[in-house]
Amino acid sequence: MRVFFDRELDTVATFWRIYRRDGAALAFTSHDRDLSFGGLRHLAAPGMIPAAIRLTAELANDSAEVQGALNHESIREAELAAGLFDEAAIEIGAVDWTSLDHHTLYTGQIGRIEDDSTQFAAELQSTKSLLEQDLVPRTSPTCRAEFCGRGCGLSAVRFTSLQVLAGIDLEANRVRFAGLDGEAHVDGRLRFMEGPQTGVAFGIIDAADDWLVLNRPLVDGTPVGARAELREGCDHTITTCADRFGNAANFRGEPFLPGNDLLARYGQP
């Protein structure tokens, strides 16, 4: 195997690969020309640089960061804002640009992304970050289970439907599905099955008739008539769980447990 940096002058560049959740794979290199290896063409992106990579034998999360300019045709500000790079898998490594011998140094996924319209910085999370999750549930007045997920007990198929997009309003960040009960889908989820944001999960934060307001920006290009997967929503209160879904037996919360404000409460007439 190629040993990097074992000589005074070395022909080494860095590379990184991004595997988005919508199926797109992007690859870049800090070299001044494109390099093809490992089945991918790595585009020359000298303005994008990996920051220091921290690897340890400890259980703490290994940290890394990538910084770059928002001028590469594959990294657009609108796509970052639209969430196309959220939770994307990433690989960072070193490559010999003469022999194309390469070695992956870091694997993980993209966490927080910050941009100021001229450049972006992406915080990367290694697989070790899963070890930092708190497995002990905290008491809460609302249900901690994901709707139709583990602990909820309700069928996702029952509350999920395929709809056809009837209208889109980019300025108001909302979409329309003819004849849809919008109120039932507040706090729900939408995923387009066609268009530039295929596979991206949108949260539904408000509704007016059959218009749904989404929690992240829409990008231009999703056509009217596109198919979308819609799942109804739940506000995670015991009233909704019992009255609307008849699922109080599976409620994962403590709605009647006194909270920290117990001493500040007063009787109601």
Results as ranks from 00 to 15, higher is better:
225 G>W: 10
262 L>A: 14
258 P>A: 12
244 R>I: 10
267 G>E: 08
225 G>N: 14
233 G>H: 01
237 T>Q: 06
247 N>E: 02
229 E>H: 13
228 A>H: 05
250 N>A: 12
233 G>A: 09
249 A>N: 10
252 R>M: 07
235 D>K: 06
259 G>T: 12
262 L>C: 08
261 D>H: 05
225 G>P: 09
265 R>Y: 02
258 P>N: 12
227 R>D: 09
229 E>Y: 13
249 A>M: 09
227 R>E: 14
252 R>S: 06
235 D>E: 10
267 G>I: 03
254 E>S: 15
236 H>A: 10
265 R>G: 14
265 R>H: 07
241 C>A: 06
255 P>F: 01
237 T>C: 09
231 R>P: 01
249 A>L: 12
269 P>Y: 10
235 D>I: 05
249 A>Q: 11
238 I>E: 08
232 E>K: 14
238 I>S: 09
251 F>D: 01
246 G>F: 08
266 Y>M: 09
252 R>Q: 11
239 T>H: 03
247 N>T: 04
226 A>S: 15
238 I>P: 01
226 A>W: 04
225 G>F: 12
249 A>W: 05
242 A>C: 03
248 A>R: 04
255 P>L: 07
242 A>P: 00
239 T>P: 00
233 G>Q: 02
265 R>W: 06
268 Q>F: 05
237 T>V: 05
230 L>S: 08
269 P>L: 11
251 F>Q: 00
254 E>F: 12
240 T>A: 06
248 A>K: 05
252 R>E: 06
244 R>H: 04
257 L>C: 15
240 T>N: 04
256 F>A: 15
234 C>P: 02
236 H>I: 05
231 R>K: 15
260 N>T: 12
228 A>I: 08
258 P>C: 09
256 F>K: 13
